[in-house]
Design a protein around this nucleic acid. Sequence first.
RNA 1: GCCGGAGUGGCGGAAUGGCAGACGCGGCGGACUCAAAAUCCGUUGCCCGCAAGGGCGUGUGGGUUCAAGUCCCACCUCCGGCACCA
Length: 938
Amino acid sequence: MPRYQPARIEPKWQAWWEAHDTFATPRLPPAGGRKAYVLDMFPYPSGDGLHVGHPEGYTATDIVSRFERMRGTCVMHPMGFDAFGLPAEEYAIRTGTPPAESTARNIATFRRQLKMLGFSYDWGREIATTDPAYVRWTQWIFLVLHDTWFDPDVQRGRPITDLPIPAAVAAAGEAAVAKYRDAHRLAYQSEAPVNWCPALGTVLANEEVIGGVSERGGHPVVRIPLRQWMLRITAYADRLERELDDLAWPESIKKLQRDWIGRSTGAEVDFFVPPAGGDAAAAFEAWKAARATAGFPETPGEDVLRIYTTRADTLYGVTCMVVAPEHPLVDRLTATGQRDEIAAYRDAAARKSDLDRTDLAREKTGVFTGSHVVHPLTGQPVPVWVADYVLASYGTGAIMSVPAHDDRDFEFARTFGLEIVTVIEPEDGPAPGGSLFTGHGRAVNSGPYTGLATQSFIAQVAADLAAAGLGRAAVNYKLRDWLFSRQRFWGEPFPILHELDAEGRPTGVVCGVAEAELPVPLPPLADFKPGDTPDPPLSRAGHDWLFVERDGRRYRRETNTMPQWAGSCWYYLRFLDPHNAERFIDPAVERAWMPVDLYVGGAEHAVLHLLYSRFWHKVLFDRGHVSHREPFGRLVNQGMILGEMEFTGYRAAGGGWVSADRRGEADTPVRLPAEQVEKQGEHFVLRDLPKIRVESRAYKMSKSRGNVVNPDQIVTDFGADSLRLYEMFMGPLEATKPWSTAGVGGVRTFLERAWRLVVDERADELALAPQVCADPPTDAQLRELHRMIDKVTKDIPALSFNTAIARMMEFVNFCTPLERRPRGLLEPFVTVLAPFAPHLAEELWEILGRPAPVSLAPWPAVEPKWLVDDTVEIPVQIQGKLRGRIVVPAGADAAALETAATADPKIAEQLAGRTIAKVVAVPGRMVNFVLANQGSQP
RNA sequence: GCCGGAGUGGCGGAAUGGCAGACGCGGCGGACUCAAAAUCCGUUGCCCGCAAGGGCGUGUGGGUUCAAGUCCCACCUCCGGCACCA
C-alpha cells in the first residue's frame, strides 16, 4: 500500500503550496537581505501544449530558486505567457475561433501543465502579453520610443523636445519642425523596401527572414516599398555591442550578437561624377579644388558617387564601380544607349525574391551603365556597373570594385572580363599576377603609398583623403533598423493617430494617443484574416474604432500592429510590479529587484529577443525609467532535447539491404529495433548481415518523425518529480541530449529507493521504516552526508545538476544497506532533495514528522571537519604508470609519501636494482618515480 | 565559405594537468520466490591469462610535461549558427 505514488502526493503538495501561498514573493526584498531574480524565458502558449524542452530550463531555474529560498535569499521567480503572435492567429484562422479565445485556452493548458510539474512560481504575478492591462504599458513604452531621439554627441536617447532644430528648419514653419522631429524619433515611419511575405500576409523584420524565406513557415518573401514603422535600433548599435562586455553571458552568445550587429570600420570615399559633355578632367580638378577648401560633405551631392570600403589600401586596384540596382544615382549614371538594358536589369532585380538574390551558388550578374566616374587619387576614369550583389541597404549602396583583392569583385571581374590590377603582395613574396589575394600585405603599384603595410596604408590614406575633403573614416553595421509594424490582427495596436484633412486624407501629421487613453484596444473584427495586399486587417475595423476626434480635428488610427517581440521586450520588468495601474513599474521596485540575476532559455533567442529587449531597456534607461544599463546579468541557454536514439537501415528498391555509407536517394530508410544491430568497430551494423552498416543517431523531435515525447504522458507514467529529475540528470544543461524513456525509469527507481529509506513499504498504513532511528550518526556516515551536501551546494549555483543528482544517488546507495538509519542522516538528505524532487521531499518530511513545508526549511550547513579523511589512498606510479597504492595519513607531506611508497613491498620490488632519477610527490594526490635512462647504461 | 560547440564503454554521461569511465540505462550472475514481478547483493572498457598479473585504451597524427581526456600545433568527422555586409 504505501508505495511511492507520485499521482497521490504530487497534487497533494501542489494544492498545499497554493493554499499556503508558499512561494508568494514580497513586493520588495527585505532591506539588507539578499535577492535573486531567477527568470525563465516565458513560453509562447502554442496549441500543442508543453514540450519536454520547456521543463528543462524551467526545472533548472526552479531548483536554483528553491535552493536560494532555503538559503534565506528573497527569490523572485515569476511565469507568464508571450501570447500574441502569428501561430495563435493562424490557428484561429484555421479553426474559425477568435485568437483571444484560443489563446486563453492554450494559456490554461500551459498553466495546468506548469503547475503539474511543481514549479515554485509566484503565480500571483502571472501576466500575458495580451492582457489589456499589459498592452497598455507596451503601448506606453512605444510612446516613449516615439518621444525619444538619439543624441550622438552623448550617445544617449533624449526627449524629442530637446532636439536642436536647425535655423533653416525653424524658419520653414511648424510643419517643417514637426517633420524634422519625426525624422529623428526612435520610432519613425519610413517608406522603404520591406520584406513582404504573401503567404503570411505580412511584412517581416530582416531578422525574421532566413535565406529569403520566412523564419516561420518557410514561405517566400519579396521586397516591396511600403510605409512602415521602424525602430532606430542602429542608433544603439555601438552601445549594444560595447556593453555586452561586462555581461556574464556565454561567449558564443555574445559573439552571435556582435556578429549580428556587425560593426565594421572603414572609410567613405567620393568618386567624382563628371557632367555630361564638357571637359571631364577640368571639371574634376575644379571639384577637387573646391573639396580641398569646403571639406567632405555630410551627405553626398549629385556630383559624386560615394562608396564605403574597409580596405582603402586597395584604392589603386579599383577597376570599376558597382552600385546596387536601387541606388538613387543609377538614372543619372546611365548612358543613353544603356537605358533599356539597365531598366530591364533593375526591373528583374526588383522582382527577384531575396532567396534568388542571395543564392551564393548563382553566377554574378550585372550591367554596365555606359558612364564613368573619376578616381579621386589617380584622376583616371572608372566604369560604373549596376549589379545586385551590391546591397542597397548596406554602406552607401555602392562599392569600389577591387578584383585582385576581394573574392566577390574577383568573381564579378572574371564573369565580365574586367581588368584585374594587383596592388598588394603577401609579405612572403609576390603572388602570380591576376590572382586573388584578400589578406594583408605590402602595397605595390600604389603611387606614393607603395611599400606600405596594409594597416599603415589604411591609416595614412584615410588621413590624406580627409585632409583633401575626398573621404572620411566611417563605421558601418550589418544591423538594420528594426521593422516594427505587421499587417496582422493579433498584436498590440499602435497608440498612434494620423491627422486627416477635410477630405479625409492623411495630412502627414502624426501624434501619439494621450497616456490617459491607453490602452488602445483591438477592435472586434468578424474577419481577422490578413488580406492579399499589405492593407492591415485593422483597416476593416468599425468607424467608431478607426476614426477619432480630438480638439476638433479628425484622426484615423494606425492600423498596423506590433510584432510579437514587443511584449517580450519588457515582461521581466512587469513581473516585478504586475498590478501597478499607475506606472509600468514602480521605480523603487525596479531598483530593488533588477537586474535579472539568472536568465535561462533556448539559444533560439540568442539574437532577436535578447537584442531587442536590451535595446528597449537602454532607451528606458536613458529616459530615466529604469536604473540599469542592461536587463540580464547571467544568461544560460539550455540545450535542445532530441528524440530517442534511432537505428536506421536502408533498403534498395529490390528489397535488399544497402549499407548506410553507400546508400542512394532511392533507398528507403527503415527504423530498426536495437536487438537487430550491433557495434562493429566504428560503426553499427546489422547483426545478421554485418556487412550492412546502419545509421545511429538521435533526431530533433518533430511530429512528422513521430518522436515527440509528451510531458503529460511522462508525468502519468513516472510522476513529475521523475520528469524533473530525469531532465536534470540527462547531462549538462547546455548540451544537446537525446531523450531516453528508460532513463526516466532510472531516476524513478532512485526516488523509490529514497522513499524506502524513510517509509516502511510493507506496512499497511503509511509508517516510518523500522530502520529509522534517533541514533547519532557515525563519523563515517557524517562524512558521507557532508560530502554529499557539499557537492550539491556547490553544484546548484554552477547549474551542474547531473553531478549533484549522481552524488545524491550515491548517498542513497550508501544508506540503503544500513540496518539503522539515523534521522540525523535522513532529514538533511530530504532537505537537499527538496529543490530537485519537491513533492517527494515534502511527503517524506511530513512522514518524518517535521513541520511542512520542507520547501522553506533551512539548507543544511556543511561542516568542513567532515570533509577530510584521516587517511587517504594515494596512487604510486613508476615512469608514469600506476604500479600500486599506499594508504597514508591525510596530511602527509611529499617526503612522507616518498618514504611510504618506497616502503611498500610491491613498489620496492619493482624499484629494486634500478636508479631513481627523480621522485615527484604531490601531497594528497600521487607519487611518481622517474627512473634513470636505462639505455645510457653500459 | 566563415564563425561557434562537440568527439570518452553497447547508450546518456563523470573526471582543479595527477588512479579514465563517478552516477544512471542496458547486459550478465546470485539471493528471495512454487514461479514471476518487485526488491536486495554482486559484476560489467577491450585484449592475453586458470589465476596472480600484464598489455592496450578518451576522433587522427605530432608536440610540451615526471605525468595529457585535460595544454600546444596540424588534420578528420558530427551538430548548431551566419552567409555577396564590400
